[in-house]
Design a protein around this nucleic acid. Structure first.
Length: 709
DNA sequence: TCACCTGCCCGC
DNA sequence: CGGGCAGGTGAA
């Protein structure tokens, strides 16, 4: 009798059992003939296992028998290997592939009517999937119509055996409570910290004053929660921002009280830090979006900075957003929430509007003292202005540059490539929207083929809602070369660039032209940039995206926040139509007001986040099939489907993009407030049923799509 | 009567 | 996903 693969696996499992029991030599007693004959644990002989496979229709737990030898190690939360999948040999079930999973619970009984297969191996004794983390993952999976196993894969980092062997540092005593520092600049700032130190759970939307103070203020909030004997967590959009809060917190506490969880650290180091948090040795985490799941013990404060930044949405299924995850966590763990940024998202404004969070903003007078002066210049001035035609710049912009360069570095914000143009009124530039569903209009080739990007309805007789003009224009893009020419216009001044591939961290406090794409602006040493020139107005506002205005304002504010305050001569020039709402909000430095007005508009037009949306995309038959099968909530409204445009070949393929050469449709499903959970559940159920029956290559479901035109 | 195929459904 | 198994089908 030859030793087939199944016999080899069986022997392997027995060896694993022997190893798990801590014996190095052969088993002393008669070896059980198969696993089925091995002794079971006496107490709680059933392990409920979350199988580590993202198949949506398998989004449930499976029971396995716990062999006696694994009894001590097979605790809830540990990683295990189990046999999974069909397999019958000679009438006995013993096949199936070995896959990884987590023990979720030990039980006395099982509901499964058949014979339980045994656990094959306990991979690690580290209880990584704690009850609190499991509960969070389950809520996130429900919220996003995703599979629990997919969310757990985001929340629990891959195992690094060496990191597990090393002990975590001894827990430190809580630091002394910090003084309010910059929070004294906000009328309700000290009160927020007081509530934190009393162990309460205040929730605030924080409109941070311009300038560099925010990182220190965020660190003080974290340290206050630590001082109150609770944990704290801050999620930042990128490693640079996280490093600034890390430095501020280290200066405040001496370090050791927190860990930095970013992609910069290697996988093993990252897991080592994560373990220190999971074990309760460290109770404060500063990190990028994956840190949103960090299993901080006794979480007292969950903070997020600049929640409008697209980096806060995870790109892996089911693509949860850090703000939403932290909001869920805060409710489950009774933690305080701090949603901070120079801008305010519509989602944050909604949390204030519903009373879930309170506003935390400085007085008007304080804002005026700390913000630079903002000037607007319209595009058309460029052609008229003779003096500055060399650099194709309006006089105002030219003067601001020249004056700024006499006093320090000047920031020039230029757009990134790759924004798809959208259509707007030729006269007043109000974005063109569908009369029926308010989706964005797009032209397929000629303008006669005008149609809605959401519902597909044609709009041959379009007239501007705002001014009545029948003429459209494609919003044009491109100011990059202007920045390049600036260097030639100021030959005596060094030009430094910062962008996607090469991000400059800081620049010295000396005259220089600093050309940067949004989000890559170097932090100036000293009092800040003397001036900033924001050249990407039309590119940002012209993006075919519901959030274009909000996003333009967010990027402008982030750049302008690096400029010296008005009393020190700081000036910002923005090339954009001064009557547009985001431009006016920038001039007045009123991001909260902008978000409130956007929220009111979205409510009246039935846009998210007031209504909840889901995008269903995939091959046309899959999209139609899923929508037909889903038992959607009664008030659900299906927009589309429409054919998705073929993505730019240059752009890296993202989740939700059709594969090369394939035609995909996308439909949007919209439900009124309060039906978001029902919508997610309906789509998840329908998708699971169809995947199980393999009726088609599955359609993708994305909750809260952000690029919906 | 048997070998093979296709579709369906399940996995502990 | 991957494999069993039921029920159908066709050739000897």
């Amino acid at each position: 009798m030859g030793e087939g693969p199944e016999q080899a696996a069986e022997v392997g499992e027995q060896l694993a059992l022997v190893r798990a029991a801590g014996r190095r030599s052969a088993a002393p007693r008669a070896r059980p003939r198969t696993w089925r004959d091995a002794e079971r644990a006496e107490r709680l002989p059933v392990a409920r296992v979350l199988v580590d496979k993202g198949l949506v229709h398998l989004d449930r737990l499976f029971d396995y028998a716990v062999p006696a030898a694994m009894d001590a190690e097979a605790r809830p939360g540990v990683r295990v290997r189990v046999r999974f999948g069909a397999g019958q040999r000679e009438g006995r079930r013993e096949g199936g592939r070995l896959i990884n999973g987590f023990i979720v619970e030990r039980r006395e009984e099982t509901d499964f009517p058949g014979v339980l297969a045994p656990l094959a191996q306990v991979l690690s004794t580290e209880p990584v999937l704690t009850p609190a983390l499991l509960r969070l993952c389950r809520s996130v999976a429900d919220r996003y119509a995703g599979a629990l196993a997919d969310v757990v894969a985001l929340a629990v980092p891959p195992r690094m055996a060496r990191a597990e062997r090393r002990p975590s540092p001894e827990p430190q005593d809580p630091p002394a409570p910090p003084d309010p520092g910059g929070w004294a600049r906000y009328p309700h700032g000290p009160g927020f910290l007081d509530a934190l130190s009393r162990g309460e759970a205040p929730r605030a939307v924080w409109t941070a004053l311009p300038g560099p103070g925010w990182a220190d203020e965020l660190a003080r909030a974290l340290a206050t929660s630590l001082a109150a004997g609770r944990g704290a967590l801050a999620v930042l959009p990128d490693g640079r921002a996280a490093a600034r809060v890390d430095a501020a917190l280290t200066a405040l506490t001496g370090g050791g009280a927190h860990v930095l969880l970013t992609a910069d650290a290697g996988r093993e180091e990252r897991y080592r830090r994560w373990l220190a948090v999971s074990r309760g040795a460290v109770r404060c985490v500063v990190g990028t979006r994956a840190a949103m799941f960090a299993p901080v013990h006794g979480l007292g404060l969950a903070a997020i900075w600049d929640d409008g930044d697209a980096a806060h949405r995870d790109e892996h299924a089911p693509q949860p957003h850090a703000r939403e995850v932290l909001v869920l966590r805060a409710a489950q763990e009774r933690a305080a929430v701090l949603l901070g940024g120079h801008g305010v998202t519509v989602e944050a404004a909604q949390l204030v509007e519903t009373g879930w969070a309170g506003p935390l903003a400085a007085a008007r007078e304080t804002v005026r003292e700390t913000a630079p002066v903002i000037r607007t210049v319209v595009e058309d001035d460029q052609r008229r202005d003779e003096a500055a035609r060399y650099a194709r710049l309006p006089t105002v912009a030219w003067q601001a540059l020249r004056d700024g360069l006499a006093h320090g570095p000047v920031l020039v914000q230029v757009p990134r490539r790759g924004y798809a143009p959208r259509l707007a009124c030729d006269r007043c530039r109000t974005p063109a929207r569908c009369a029926d569903c308010h989706g964005p209009l797009a032209a397929e080739g000629a303008l006669e083929l005008l149609g809605c990007g959401w519902c597909g309805r044609r709009a041959p007789e379009w007239h501007c809602d705002a001014c009545g003009s029948p003429r459209l224009r494609a919003v044009v893009i491109g100011a990059r070369r202007t920045a390049e020419e600036l260097g030639r216009a100021f030959p005596a001044v060094p030009v430094r660039t910062s962008g996607r591939d090469h991000v400059l961290d800081t620049v010295p406090d000396a005259p220089a032209l600093v050309v940067s794409t949004p989000g890559a602006e170097p932090v100036p040493a000293g009092p800040g940039y003397a001036a900033a020139l924001l050249l990407d107005g039309w590119a940002l506002l012209g993006r075919p995206d519901l959030r274009a205005g909000e996003e333009a304002l967010r990027r402008w504010l982030n750049a302008a926040a690096l400029v010296r305050p008005q009393p020190q001569g700081g000036t910002v020039v923005v090339l954009a139509e001064p009557t547009l709402r985001p431009v006016q909000s920038l001039v007045r430095w009123d991001p909260a007001g902008h978000a409130r007005r956007e929220l009111a508009d979205r409510a009246s037009l039935g846009f998210p986040p007031v209504s909840r949306m889901a995008a269903v995309s995939g091959p046309p038959d899959a999209v139609a099939g899923l929508l037909g099968a889903a038992r959607l909530p009664p008030d659900a409204e299906v927009l589309g489907p429409v054919r998705l445009p073929v993505p730019d070949p240059g752009r890296p393929r993202r989740t939700g993009d059709p594969p090369a050469g394939e035609q995909w449709d996308r439909a949007l499903v919209r439900v009124p407030p309060g039906q978001g959970a029902a919508l997610a559940a309906a789509l998840k159920t329908a998708r699971a049923a169809r995947l199980a029956r393999r009726e088609s290559a599955g359609a993708r479901v994305l909750i809260d799509p952000s690029d919906i035109g």
